[in-house]
Write a protein that binds this DNA or RNA. Sequence first.
DNA 1: ATAAATATCAAACAAAAAGTTTTATAAACA
DNA 2: TGTTTATAAAACTTTTTGTTTGATATTTAT
Lengths: 187, 187
Amino acid sequence: MKEKIDLRIVKTNKVLFNALITLMEQKDFEKIKISDICEVALINRSTFYAHYEDKYDLLLAMIDNLKQNLENELKQNKEENISKNYFIEFLKILINHVDEKRTTYNSILKNDKNGILIDFLIDVSNRDLISRLKNNNIIKSNIPLDIITKFYLGGIVSIGIDWIKNKDKYTKEELISYFDKLIPDKI
Amino acid sequence: MKEKIDLRIVKTNKVLFNALITLMEQKDFEKIKISDICEVALINRSTFYAHYEDKYDLLLAMIDNLKQNLENELKQNKEENISKNYFIEFLKILINHVDEKRTTYNSILKNDKNGILIDFLIDVSNRDLISRLKNNNIIKSNIPLDIITKFYLGGIVSIGIDWIKNKDKYTKEELISYFDKLIPDKI
DNA sequence: ATAAATATCAAACAAAAAGTTTTATAAACA
DNA sequence: TGTTTATAAAACTTTTTGTTTGATATTTAT
């Protein structure tokens, strides 16, 4: 089913991802040159072009990789842990995931690439959020469901962005308790 | 107090803004060349460099211009109309403003520049939102105020983005009623 | 209406970055 | 161990950026 990928390719991708993150911490995405990336990654420029069209292509691949990591962590938890409060469970995993990869997320957000992040969060969290909102007044209030989910996820991402940018402003536990209060369960 | 700006400069700025919007509808911001912009704007490339450092500089100027427009519309309304429900009033003006400049906002959002938009909205709407949230349970729930405002504004922007992208999915009136229901007044 | 100021244009230029190609080498695979 | 294939190195072309010059046209101010 899943083909083995040449170790060299895996390695090259890794150093490219790391180089991009490092550079995005230092300067605007727009100002980063492909030659900069290769220099930091210690690979040849022709090798870069063998894998990616341009730096934007590389960025998308990196974000896709992040998403896969998160999805794996979520799947693993679903198998082990069967709690009733799916959404809070989801938020805990999300927050831990982001916390562990804070540098990466920070560099993405610093460069205004959060539209991509919101889409991916919506994709990944929709079901759990809906399970939380079911049976409450909001969901009965004839507002379309996609509007409701966009609203709460937008709010979560907005706070999340602030949290990533301002490390140690709030603890993870505080964050979860805020979300818990702001997103209606049963009213 | 305010100095007169040479008509030629005003004109150049206008065609540059328009050209950028036109191009952002067609392709990614990253892929737009300064020579493209000048070609569409029908100005010389050296004229571009006389005004802006690069295309990002131009984008920021364009967004700043939008913000000033919105602020003027808000100020005007504040003088004419003294309603008690400041925040809904604010939302109405905001929605009309965005609707009139839909192409512009759409092109900005398509290109993942919404981080900038959220900051500017927070800047522009904070007071009215807080006036709405005062005296309700949320604000008494010992969640920091900036968390609360970020949450609701993030939600509003997230829905707004969807609305701009999917024209005519909901009417302006529906949109306002959704916001009104989703953002607690008194509970 | 005219003079002075200045923004734009045109064209040529230098420099930087992107992107391609070839061959040799080294690493991974089977 | 032999075969495959990714990477490196280096030279090269093309594209795009950014700057400079002087001539021209437009705007402003008198």
